[in-house]
Every structure is written in structure tokens, then in C-alpha cells.
Design a protein around this nucleic acid. Sequence first.
DNA 1: TTATTTAGTTAGTATAAACTAACGTTTGTT
DNA 2: AACAAACGTTAGTTTATACTAACTAAATAA
Lengths: 124, 124
Amino acid sequence: MRTFGNESAENYLEAILVLSKKLPVVRSVDIANELGFKKSSVSVAMKNLREKKHITVSEAGFIFLTDSGREIAEMIYERHEFLTDWLIKLGVSEETASEDACRIEHVISSESFEAIKRHVPSGQ
Amino acid sequence: MRTFGNESAENYLEAILVLSKKLPVVRSVDIANELGFKKSSVSVAMKNLREKKHITVSEAGFIFLTDSGREIAEMIYERHEFLTDWLIKLGVSEETASEDACRIEHVISSESFEAIKRHVPSGQ
DNA sequence: TTATTTAGTTAGTATAAACTAACGTTTGTT
DNA sequence: AACAAACGTTAGTTTATACTAACTAAATAA
């Protein structure tokens, strides 16, 4: 069967990366706002990410990506950006493009993603 | 949150369509073999599809798509075929192409799918 | 005819991921 | 000092989906 086991974690890590670009520090409540989840859900998710060593959390509750967490986050973020831009170029509305990218980014293989990247004329 | 509520149903409906192309009749056990699931899982899934009126089941246990079931199955199947072929054309291995298509087909919007179709030179 | 295989069902289990509700801590306000 | 707000955590619930185990019923074979 399909696991889906990583999709949720990937999404949280991506959100942390995105938030770290616009906020001085990232807290659980910021993630809850960003993703539209309840803070209890985020709390549990952060516990899991902590256990998997994808984040560290300071005394004050500030959340930081570890190397492994950052690696995942950046991979997903790159996919998100690329797929969104590409779909928009194909005529898809910004909103739909972003929503679809958000789903595809978690399920596409590296092999396929790289193939699409190769095929799309980059930088235009 | 993401629902995912339909992905499983879509997958079963697609399998029924695919099997109906190669077998004289489709039974639960055929679906279980096709998808690699246990027959108990299929039994429960068929109950749900029956309740949603996407299939009918004869006395003998033969499974038939209703109009709504066929519509979904054909939409997913078209996506599967198209995405697989397209990825292969881009240089992705057949196996990966099919696996990725199998995931993307359930999460992509019609808007994006149609945009990709438009952009790919059809029939070559 | 008994025994075996095949098909389907049901009940209960497991996991992932969200939720609500309730609680403790800290911080800020009056 | 006392009360309220903000933040985080925990416990327990819900839903979706697959699982195992145990059962029935029908079909096949010894």
C-alpha cells in the first residue's frame, strides 16, 4: 500500500523553511497559522520531527531545522517553486498552480522531477 | 487539511476499469490481486463504492461500474495513461513513470492536467 | 460423500493525521 | 496582586485505510 508516511512531515518542514524566510524566529503557533492547523496538531508534529532529528527546539520554543530537516525542506521548497512557476507558465491560475504543486511536490520521484526540469527551458 | 478522501476510491475504480478490459468479469479477488491488497480490504472498499453508487455487484459477485463510477475511473485512467507516456517521453523509466503517474493522477486538478495536455504535442 | 479450495464477509487491530477539550506556564495589564 | 491572553502540551476522539483472524458458503476433487 501507499505509505504517505512522509507527506505530513515534509509539509511541516517546508512551512518552517518558508516562515524562517519571513520571520525572525519560528514558533509552533506560527506554523499553525501558516498551515491552518490547530496548535495541538502542530505540537504533536513537532514532537515527531524532533524525534526524527529534523528540527531542534530552543528553551524559548524557537524552532530550527537540522541539516537533515533543511535538506528535506529545501528539496520540497524547490519543487514547490518550480512546479508552481511551470504550471503558471502553462496557463494555470496562480492559486490552482500553487495548490497542485503543494500536492505533487510530495509524491513525485526525483527522477521525474529532474526530467521535467530538464525539459522546461529554465530561467524564462 | 488535505482530505485524501477520494484517492483510495479512485484507485479501486481505476483498477475495476483496467480489469474489465482484460477479464470477462471482474470480482473482488481480481481487484485484490491487481492491487496487491487483501481480499478483506477489497470487500470493505467495495461496500463503500456500492454505498456511493459507483459500482453494482451481481448475485454472482461480478462487479460493474455505474455511470458515475465509470466517469471517475475513465478520468483517472486517462490521466494515468497520459502522464505515464509523457514522463516516459521525458526520459523517465517506465516503472517510475507509471508509479509517479499513479500518485499524481489523484492529486492534480483538472485545470493543471488540461494545461499540461495542451502543452504537450499530442499523438507523438 | 467427505474434504479442500476459493470467494466473500465480519470483527477487531494498527497507523497516520487531523481534531476538541482541558490544563500549566509565562507574560502583560489593570 | 489578580486577572487575562498567548503559547505549548497532553489525553482522548475521529476518519481513512490497510491489516489479521475467523467465519460462511459454494464449488471442486478425492
